[in-house]
Amino acid sequence: MFGKRLVIGVPWFWLLLFFAIPFLIVFKISFSWMQPIQPGYAPLFSWVEETQRFVATLNLSNYEVLFRDPLYLNTFLYSIKVAAISTVLCLLVGYPMAYAIARCKPSTRNLMLMLIILPFWTSFLLRVYAWIGLLKTNGVINNTLIALGIIDQPLTLLYTDFAVYVGIVYSYLPFMILPLYANLEKHDLTLLEAAADLGASPTKTFFRVTLPLSMPGVVAGCLLVFIPAVGEFVIPSLLGRTDQLMIGTVLSAQFFGARNWPVASAVAIALLLALLIPILLFQRYQRRELEAAKR
């Protein structure tokens, strides 16, 4: 009994220490006033000598800024758009790859999965920098295309939305492929034979049988790509447009550049709330699936 509590207790303790407490701190800061001296924000509760009272100073203006300044709404919507398009691209690229791996011989499968995970062994930052070398005006891609005579003038690839999509799809693809593979690999292949036997062409079979059965994998993969992609700031800072920021970049600029922790915290909380919606939807979906499987 004690052992069981201990085993369950460790992750709870971990979450409390490294998630719940930091979150509460950030939540608290988001209601503070900014002040130029350390720690950068005023305390929420203070003892006022003159009136002999305990005073709580709650500042809602940090949140108000988010709605008043179009920068925030604009970057937030742009981030959602970039993340959504990247997620769809990841799905379109990742699904066939996961499918192919799942249908390989078991011995080949492990090799293929190794190859998918292999890039993780290099620094993420380094891999994003490498894309600069590929995409820049006199980079590998432009030089190759000019040498082949396909184009005369170098294309503007770097510092565009396109470069951000490339960066995100490249970096997050394994997060799409792995849950999809885990799902597709479990499929009962006699179901495909049954569909064929009942007169469905391979295309029909895919859309009526394989795709619906792989939806849990699709949803898991999409969330694993979409959620971190919304808050992504390394890829858009290195590869993206200079005239259009993503919310992660703004957040990081407020924290480290402007040192406005209260507003930065408000941005973080707002972002978290916005991302909570898809997570909750996913959990509800998963619960329904689980209940269906139990019955």
């Binding site: 009962d188 034979e193 049954a194 569909a195 036997d197």
Partner: peptide, 17 residues
């Protein structure tokens, strides 16, 4: 298979779950 005038009942039944 999908163009044959034949239907099969599979050992595992292979019902679409």
């Amino acid at each position: 298979p999908h163009e044959r005038p034949v239907n099969m009942m599979f050992q595992s039944y292979a019902l679409f779950p």
